[in-house]
Simulated assay, not measured.
Amino acid sequence: MKKNKIVVIGSINMDLVMRVPYIPNIGETIMGKSVERIPGGKGANQAFTAAKLGANVSMLGKIGGDEFGARLIESMQNAGVDTSCIDLEADASSGLAIIQVNDEGDNSIVVLSGANELCNKSYIIAHENVIGEAGIVIVQMEVPNEAVYQAIELASKSDAIMILNPAPAPDYIPDHVLEKIDYLVPNETELQKLTGMPVHSIETAGTASRTLLSKGLKNMIVTLGSKGSLLVNSDGIVHFPAPNVQAIDTTAAGDSFVAAFAVGLSEGKSDKDAIAFATKVAAIVVTRAGAQTSIPDRREVDAAT
């Protein structure tokens, strides 16, 4: 059924994850502890998470003709993602993310786009039928803006619920695009960049969110790390605290939250109940290392207190 189908459009990367005692300063050399290659990319992580949580998921994106491409596809397929519409760009490299994770579980990430940069407007238009089958469409911003905005336009035409995770955040999102988004889900840093306003607390996050609502955005969900998240809309502001857990690696926390929120909506949950479900999933993810390797399945989530 269309209502339950989730389509994720976005990046597919191999994550090169380096464990370090702390994030080095400019010009500083430190010794790392370990390195792993883990399938990732915001789009792939979100599709992977949604599928592991039991959703019907299709992924749109591109991989390169290098050694990573097949492994990236295999990882998503193993989770249950329909990868049949992912394009192979034989002459390009697959996306690569270089991630440093410190002893507190915080990270610093550099992304090399590779084939993701070729995920353009024409590719999105060529898969309009896939988007038209979706009840929910999720996009992020590790593919070109023209593809993101085209996907939002097509989702709007088909009456799908449109979720934009503006990561990495652009300097602004045009008003005519904001009006077509049902849920914008930035973190504090992304919200600050989008609005040009300081975001360092629950109160300032709410204030900054209202500036985007005034431009036609329907709902804002701001993820605040250990402080939880906010739902901001015309009804007001609701704060969802995060459970107290020992974070090991926050790499896929935001991606898992967005995907789990979409899964909740696809199952008929209210947005508040879907946020509570997403909070539960993200709290598990941060206690584990890696991106897709940290994602729980539905039984684990349902069994968690």
Rank of each mutant, 00 (worst) to 15 (best):
R37E: 14
Y172P: 00
V245R: 06
L224D: 03
N165T: 03
R37M: 12
E188A: 09
V7M: 07
N4Q: 13
A260D: 12
S108R: 08
L178S: 01
S11M: 10
G64S: 04
D175R: 06
T223A: 04
A147E: 10
A253Q: 08
D255M: 08
H176N: 10
L88A: 00
S58L: 05
V35C: 10
K193N: 02
G61M: 03
D235M: 09
I237H: 06
H239W: 13
V238K: 15
G268M: 12
I161E: 07
V81F: 05
V35P: 02
V17Y: 07
A304D: 14
L184C: 00
N13H: 07
I86F: 09
K42D: 05
A70L: 04
V177N: 00
D182K: 01
A253H: 11
I284L: 15
V185C: 05
G65K: 09
S108H: 09
P243A: 14
S209C: 03
F48M: 08
D87C: 02
D249N: 09
L212C: 00
S266E: 08
G254Y: 11
I63W: 06
A274N: 12
A70T: 08
L118H: 10
I136S: 09
G268N: 12
T287Q: 15
V232D: 00
A169E: 04
I295H: 15
I86E: 01
S156R: 11
F257L: 11
K272R: 14
E89D: 05
M1N: 13
L96P: 00
N116E: 07
D271A: 13
A151M: 09
S270V: 13
V111N: 03
V35L: 15
T287P: 03
K269M: 15
K269V: 01
T204I: 03
R37Y: 11
P243H: 11
A151N: 06
T287R: 08
V8K: 12
I109C: 06
F261W: 10
P39Y: 07
I30C: 05
L112G: 07
T49M: 05
M1D: 15
G290Q: 14
T189I: 12
N78W: 01
S113E: 04
M1T: 14
E74N: 03
L184D: 01
E133K: 12
V245E: 08
L265N: 06
M18T: 15
G41D: 04
I109Y: 02
P24S: 11
N145V: 09
S270T: 15
G69S: 02
T207L: 15
R288Y: 13
G65H: 10
